[in-house]
Amino acid sequence: MPLSDFLSMSKSGGYSEEAEDDDGVIAISVPTGEGPITVTLSRRQFTHLLAAAGLTAMLPETALASEALPEAVVRSTAGLSGADYRQLLAAHQNGHRLLDPRSHIVSLRHTLRDIDHVREGAGTATRRDLRQVQGEYAEHLSWLYRECGDIASCRRWADQATAWALEGGDTSMAAYMMVRKASLALDAGDSTTAVELATAVGSASWTVPPVLYGVAKAYEARGHALDGTVAAAQLDEATELITGGRSEGDPAYLRFFAADFADVQRATCYVDAGIPSRAVTILQSKVTSLPVSNHRDRAVHLVRLGAAHAADRVPDAAAFAALGSLSEARRVSSEHVLAELAQLDATLTARWPTQPQVRQFHEALTETRVT
Rank of each mutant, 00 (worst) to 15 (best):
L49W: 02
L49R: 03
L50Y: 03
L50D: 00
L50V: 05
A51T: 01
A51W: 00
A52V: 01
A52G: 14
A53M: 04
G54I: 04
G54L: 06
G54V: 02
G54R: 08
L55A: 00
L55F: 11
T56M: 01
A57T: 13
A57F: 07
M58T: 06
M58A: 15
P60H: 04
P60W: 07
E61V: 05
E61W: 11
E61C: 04
T62H: 14
T62S: 04
T62V: 13
A63G: 05
L64A: 01
A65M: 03
A65C: 01
A65L: 14
E67R: 15
E67K: 13
E67T: 13
A68M: 06
A68L: 06
A68I: 03
A68V: 03
A68S: 15
L69W: 07
L69S: 05
P70I: 09
P70W: 11
E71W: 11
A72N: 14
A72F: 06
A72C: 03
A72G: 14
A72Q: 12
A72W: 05
V73K: 06
V74T: 09
V74N: 02
V74A: 02
S76K: 10
S76L: 02
S76Y: 02
S76T: 12
S76D: 15
T77F: 13
G79F: 00
G79M: 01
G79E: 02
G79L: 00
L80C: 07
L80K: 12
L80M: 15
S81V: 03
G82H: 07
A83Q: 14
A83T: 07
D84F: 08
Y85L: 08
Y85A: 14
Q87M: 14
L88S: 11
L88E: 13
L89N: 04
L89I: 07
A90S: 11
A90C: 02
H92E: 11
H92V: 13
H92F: 13
Q93M: 09
Q93H: 10
Q93K: 14
Q93Y: 12
N94W: 12
N94E: 15
N94A: 15
N94M: 06
N94P: 01
N94L: 10
G95A: 04
G95I: 03
H96V: 06
R97K: 09
L98E: 07
L98W: 01
L98S: 08
L99E: 10
L99Y: 06
L99N: 05
L99G: 03
D100P: 06
D100N: 09
P101S: 10
P101W: 01
P101Y: 00
R102H: 06
R102M: 13
S103K: 00
H104V: 12
I105D: 02
V106H: 10
V106C: 06
V106T: 15
